[in-house]
Nucleic acid binder design. Structure first.
Length: 503
RNA sequence: UCCCCGAUAGCUCAACUGGUAGAGCGAGCGGCUGUUAACCGCUAGGUUGUAGGUUCGAGUCCUACUCGGGGAGCCA
């Protein structure tokens, strides 16, 4: 077969009426006697290919009819616009070449469990949803680089094997470095700070490792983080940078991945609202909100909604169960059974929320100034807003040693978290850094860290110290928020979770 | 670290208070010229996570363990 007319599915719009060759994998196949409907994927999209008996040799028709899912093949035919077809185009096949016939591909077009799919992650990446998420991930990462590169930032690659504790000593991954204990980087921040004193505006972007014993939908032990750092910046300007940055990422995804977002069922209308300015709250405001009547009412209303939702689901389940016992076709029964499984899963989730609601309400009401905001507190604040929220000026004792004490109030630091809206929670943490040598040294001591390890970091405060600051954005959390994907593990090709690495 | 739930065919799940282990998908064979997770007929496919216990009898009850899911805590 000649490869001269080979095109990608994404380019079919330019080939209507022409004879072309597609090379790809069989994603799905249906047959209706003398017509085969083969859906092909080639990495750029899906295309339904029509094979009619009589238009190709009989022997080839029989081979194609028996072809298993994920067989690789090349199909030649004429391109036609077709509304009914996935992607909007169809290929009327005139010739075909089977490259590798496949039998027993484990991931079928039916539903599968989480564990099974993670064990088959190397194959699951081919599935349509995962493919869409991967394309959005690509856009997010490209947008991150583009934003900083176009705004005068210099990329600095920070080390992965390191001696310093950037965040928390409990969550370090130890590495045996020729007999000496070292660990994997929890952040590149301290290194980008020194680079900021050379270039002014810098960022690092790479994998980050945290051995947190957190088994939640928002945690990975290996994740990607981008950390800009700017010399001569104050907190208001840093917030402005962060909101422009996040808005740019969302805009790029909306521009480049609209069909992926649609496939995933993402909330596009909400994403379109993500423009500066974002909401700004101080930690103290947040505490007032959490302990105030508004939150009480909000949670009570939410509980009400959940109860209604629960009742609706339950009556629907009862309805289906009655229907199931009647005289109906077996396939119809199975459809009902499948719907029931889905409804029951939804019901379980609603029940968990109902169970958690009073607990979260109690936690919020009893919240006292000085504690770090818990996961549920963040969720509540984020649910009460339709745009991202900056929470600034946290109590000093809940935060890392390098954050600058607020000159106007020495109980708080000049930091911020950015909470994504609609209950998603934190995607950015950042701060102005302590630039006074003696204050920083004291903070290092207070945290029980060894000052000698930080000699080079303290040097930055000895030789031309300037006000500076930066933040870190979690890539997978951002992708999960933008796509509406429930679990962060779907947002990285090969996830590493607490106690669990599949492949 | 704690709490809750689960483990049955390759996959997703049934099997009421203990009584012969089933269905769909997938696989194989056959039918159907416009299917959208197509449909219809037939066939194959199981030591019910592991180890013990109770019982005439255990997928079902009890104990321990292993693995998984969800949540809490903790944490960007």
């Amino acid at each position: 077969m000649s490869n001269n007319n080979k095109v990608y599915i994404s380019e079919l719009t330019n080939s209507v009426g022409k004879e072309v060759t597609l090379a790809g994998w069989l994603y799905q196949a249906r047959s209706s006697g003398k017509v085969l409907f083969l859906i092909i994927r080639d990495g750029t999209g899906l295309c339904q290919c029509i094979v009619e008996k009589g238009k190709i040799p009989d022997e080839l028709f029989e081979q194609l009819k028996r072809l298993g899912q994920e067989s690789s093949l090349m199909l030649t035919g004429t391109v036609r616009a077709e509304q009914r077809s996935v992607g909007g185009y169809e290929l009327s096949v005139t010739n075909a070449e089977i490259i590798c016939p496949t039998e027993g591909y484990p991931i079928t077009p039916k539903s599968h469990g989480v564990d099974f799919l993670l064990k088959n992650r190397h194959l699951h990446l081919r599935s349509h949803r995962q493919w869409c998420i991967g394309r959005i991930r690509h856009t997010v990462i490209d947008a991150i680089r583009r934003f900083f590169n176009d705004n005068g930032f210099i990329l600095i690659d920070t080390p992965i094997i390191t001696t310093i504790v950037g965040e928390d000593q409990q969550s370090l991954f130890e590495v045996d470095y020729f007999g000496s204990p070292m660990h994997l980087a929890q952040t590149g921040q301290l290194y980008v700070e020194s680079a900021a004193m050379s270039y002014g505006k810098v960022y690092c972007f790479g994998p980050t490792f945290r051995a947190e014993k957190s088994k939640t939908r928002r945690h990975l032990t290996e994740f990607w983080m981008v950390e800009p750092e700017v010399a001569f910046i104050d907190l208001p300007a840093l917030l402005e940078l962060a909101e422009n940055f996040v808005s740019f990422i969302v805009a790029q995804v909306l521009q480049n991945n609209r069909s992926d977002l649609e496939t995933l069922g993402s909330d596009i209308a909400s994403l379109e609202k993500i423009t500066p300015p974002f909401y700004r709250l101080t930690y103290t405001d947040a505490v007032d909100i959490l302990t105030g009547q508004k939150t009480k009412d909000f949670l009570a209303e939410q509980l009400n909604d959940l109860q209604t939702q629960k009742q609706q689901t339950e009556s629907r389940i009862a309805e289906l169960e009655t229907e199931q016992t009647g005289q109906i076709k077996q396939w119809k029964k199975d459809k009902i059974a499948a719907e029931l499984i889905e409804l029951c899963a939804g019901l379980a989730e609603t029940n968990t929320k109902i169970e958690n609601n009073p607990r979260h309400a109690a936690l919020a009401a009893e919240f006292r100034w000085g504690k770090d905001l818990g996961g549920s507190d963040e969720t509540i604040i984020s649910q009460m807003h339709d745009k991202p929220i900056f929470v600034t000026h946290y109590p000093k004792r809940a935060k890392a040693f390098y954050m600058k004490t607020d000159p106007k109030n020495d109980k708080v630091v000049e930091n911020f978290d950015l909470l994504a809206p609609a209950g998603f929670g934190e995607i950015i943490g950042g701060s102005i850094r302590e630039d006074d040598h003696d204050l920083l040294l004291r903070r290092i001591g207070e945290q029980g860290l060894n000052p000698e390890t930080y000699n080079w970091y303290l040097d930055l405060r000895k030789y031309g110290s300037v006000p500076h600051g930066g933040f870190g954005l979690g890539v997978e959390r951002t992708i999960a928020w933008v796509t509406g994907e429930k679990h962060i593990r779907q947002c990285i090709p090969f996830p590493r979770m607490m106690d669990k690495v599949y492949i």
